[in-house]
Simulated assay, not measured.
Amino acid sequence: MHQHHEVRIAACPDYVWAVLTDVARWPQWASALREVVPYDGGPLVVGGRVRVRARNLPVRDWCVREVRAHRGFTWEQVGVGSAATLVVGIRPAPPGGTTLELTARRSGWVASVVDRMTGATATAHLEELADGLRRRCEAGQCAPVSPPAQSARDVV
Rank of each mutant, 00 (worst) to 15 (best):
H2D: 13
A10F: 04
A10N: 14
A11C: 07
P13Q: 05
P13R: 15
D14R: 15
Y15H: 06
A18V: 03
T21Y: 07
V23Q: 01
R25E: 12
R25F: 02
P27D: 02
S31P: 12
E35R: 04
V37Q: 02
Y39H: 14
Y39V: 01
D40G: 13
G42L: 08
L44S: 10
G47T: 04
G48P: 06
R49S: 03
R51C: 01
V52H: 01
L57W: 00
L57F: 01
D61N: 08
C63T: 15
C63E: 15
V64G: 12
E66D: 15
R68V: 09
R71F: 03
G72N: 08
F73H: 12
Q77I: 01
V78F: 01
G79A: 05
V80I: 09
A84H: 03
L86S: 02
V87R: 14
A93W: 13
P94C: 08
P94V: 07
P95V: 05
G96D: 13
G97C: 13
G97Q: 13
G97E: 11
T99W: 09
T99P: 00
T103A: 09
R106E: 11
G108N: 04
W109N: 05
V110H: 03
A111M: 06
A111W: 08
S112W: 11
V113E: 01
V113T: 13
R116G: 11
M117G: 01
T121Y: 03
A122S: 07
H125I: 11
H125W: 01
L133F: 08
L133W: 07
R135F: 05
A143C: 07
V145G: 03
P148W: 07
S151D: 10
A152Q: 11
R153I: 05
R153S: 07
D154V: 00
V155E: 14
V155T: 12
